[in-house]
Design a protein around this nucleic acid. Sequence first.
DNA 1: CATGAATGAGCATTCATTCAT
DNA 2: AATGAATGAATGCTCATTCAT
Lengths: 215, 215, 215, 215
Amino acid sequence: MSVTLLFPDAGDEAGPGKREQTKAQNRDAILKAARAVFSELGYEAASVRDIIRRTGLASGTFYNYYRSKEEVAKALVADVAQRLRPILRAQREQAHDFESYLNGAIRAYFQFIIDELRNWGPGRPRGDRNPYIKVQTPGQGAVFEEIQASINLVLELGLGPRVDTEFLTAALIGVAQNIGEKMLARDPIDLDAAADFAVNLILHGVSAMPRRHPA
Amino acid sequence: MSVTLLFPDAGDEAGPGKREQTKAQNRDAILKAARAVFSELGYEAASVRDIIRRTGLASGTFYNYYRSKEEVAKALVADVAQRLRPILRAQREQAHDFESYLNGAIRAYFQFIIDELRNWGPGRPRGDRNPYIKVQTPGQGAVFEEIQASINLVLELGLGPRVDTEFLTAALIGVAQNIGEKMLARDPIDLDAAADFAVNLILHGVSAMPRRHPA
Amino acid sequence: MSVTLLFPDAGDEAGPGKREQTKAQNRDAILKAARAVFSELGYEAASVRDIIRRTGLASGTFYNYYRSKEEVAKALVADVAQRLRPILRAQREQAHDFESYLNGAIRAYFQFIIDELRNWGPGRPRGDRNPYIKVQTPGQGAVFEEIQASINLVLELGLGPRVDTEFLTAALIGVAQNIGEKMLARDPIDLDAAADFAVNLILHGVSAMPRRHPA
Amino acid sequence: MSVTLLFPDAGDEAGPGKREQTKAQNRDAILKAARAVFSELGYEAASVRDIIRRTGLASGTFYNYYRSKEEVAKALVADVAQRLRPILRAQREQAHDFESYLNGAIRAYFQFIIDELRNWGPGRPRGDRNPYIKVQTPGQGAVFEEIQASINLVLELGLGPRVDTEFLTAALIGVAQNIGEKMLARDPIDLDAAADFAVNLILHGVSAMPRRHPA
DNA sequence: CATGAATGAGCATTCATTCAT
DNA sequence: AATGAATGAATGCTCATTCAT
């Protein structure tokens, strides 16, 4: 027979009580597990069970924090947004013409995905299942949402060229996304090369690009 | 003793037997249902059962034609490739400089996805499930594979500008994909506007773009 | 601040918690159902679904306890082995010549299958399906394994006659199995008659058998 | 366009017409396939589909000859019975005492299963699935039925010792079955050794057995 | 709040059997 | 009589979610 004495909140001092602390820990553990699982299996293929397993918690516990896979994904998205948004805002506020904004924003974006790489895993190894299907994780989706919003803000403020802004946004996003991806796939990762390429292409087009091999 | 005369295929005008006919019909029905289901639910979320239900056939019948969801997807991909490839090849063969190739290829691609629109559904209405996750159908994946291959061919032949071809391909694909998508979402669909925008952007960059609203 | 006193296992007389109790009950229910189903349908013909149905539990519950039909069978086998093995060991240790061992082992075996009768059902009523095919349940298979092992031990120790031990074991098993079966089919069950017959036959052969009907 | 001329029964001469011939061929092919499949997979695990596949015929054709797996099994059983029965009958008629009958019958049985070995495969390789479960093919079941019937005939005629004939039959069958099995498993197969062992055991019991290794 | 067993809907797949050709 | 596609019941198993402890 054993007697267990628990003192769950044994102090007056400020800070989260043990209760709140564990709650935060669990919430974090679930988010971390979800990030890993989404990255490894892809969002759709991942199951709540996968996340729970990774967590080590009891299955019921998951539902004390999130009601479904979708909800965890939303939380993940919010997390990314919260970290990326101020960075992009800073770029907007610093920039005084479109060129400088573009340069700053693209570099900020590239830096961000480099930093996140360690959270997300190498990209999409689950492409094995079907080589033609690109799978996004909620985090990746969130990043694009953010930069899209940022670009729109700038364009709507009239800072950019006076062109079809919807098309322009779409194009910028496409370039950033795809070049960013290639950048991550290379070793070593060369942010400057990728950013210069993207910015130059968008600003001056292919015709003004520096020759790669001045044969 | 009896003499039996069989005329199993009595003439050139004879069509396929009833058996072959219904077989072809079923195969088609399954492909059509799969296309619709993939488009509505996304490839990963779609289940074989969903496809079967859409088909109206008995569940066992599906397996007389395809062994799995993956196999139907492959068939869908092959179908797209088979239709898109000759078009892109023609563009490559006609073009004598990068500008003309780019123009032709982008228009061909835009035309193709306009034609396919009715097969693919309006884009991705299954974003309801998670608005941050872009889901590709096998068909869409196949299209990108094809144009990527086409671009690579051209760039490797030295027709294009002498820049980092991997980055360039990535950027072109990104621009085409995202602008194409916006084009489809507009009503009326204006291929010329979209193609002009994309081609100009890539060739001369934002700086040389015509003003949209010469206010 | 709060003090929580937990008495998770407060004493020797405390039984298992309700959770553990129902778990044990379920495990037992599954085993019992499996025994019945194997006995009625035969091992191969029995499906996991059959066992589940018999159980009254939800289908998923089965898989909380066993991963497959094979696993339940293994549990059944282990159960039989655990109960039969010590009995046979005792016989071996008591016996000082082959005759006494044989007598003890056969009686022990016959007694065991009489006791198990209520678990196994009457033998193989599923012969309806095909009267020529004898079907064994995992339990029956386990019993034969055990007595075979026991006989082999004795023979290898040199206690038995110095003959081809593989053949001898095979013959003993065959006699015990088939006479035991006939014994169970009779009403009333007469263990002594069956055991005497089997032991005498093996020891002295048909020539020395007592006449049945001294007409 | 092709014209096919078939002369399915082009003659008056006796013998089966092509029609009957193909019918017999198909029937045979099915039986042969069934034998092989039962032997490889076990009776229960074998499916009608397995048999059909092995046959090369169309699935529908099977049902023109047999209505189910059970029916093919019955046909297989009848076939074995038809071949084994006269052999055993001859033994009965030749024998004038129990000893000679037993000797003849056991040898006949052993010879038969040696001959059939090539039809049945090596015994039961599908024991992998569950090592405790012995699986019988319909053919094997049929053989035991036959020799059991033969023994019963002899015993009921009063030729054998006046003992409990049901028990005696059971014991004989058990010995013959198990020793026969061991005989088949050895290389080289030694019919005489096995038969001598079995006959001696039954007639005189273990006490009178010749020592194996007169150390 | 944490736990983890119970639940039953759902899924992929196979199979015996039928029947139009 | 042969064919082989169609059928839909059945199977093994997984999963999200609930809820008593």
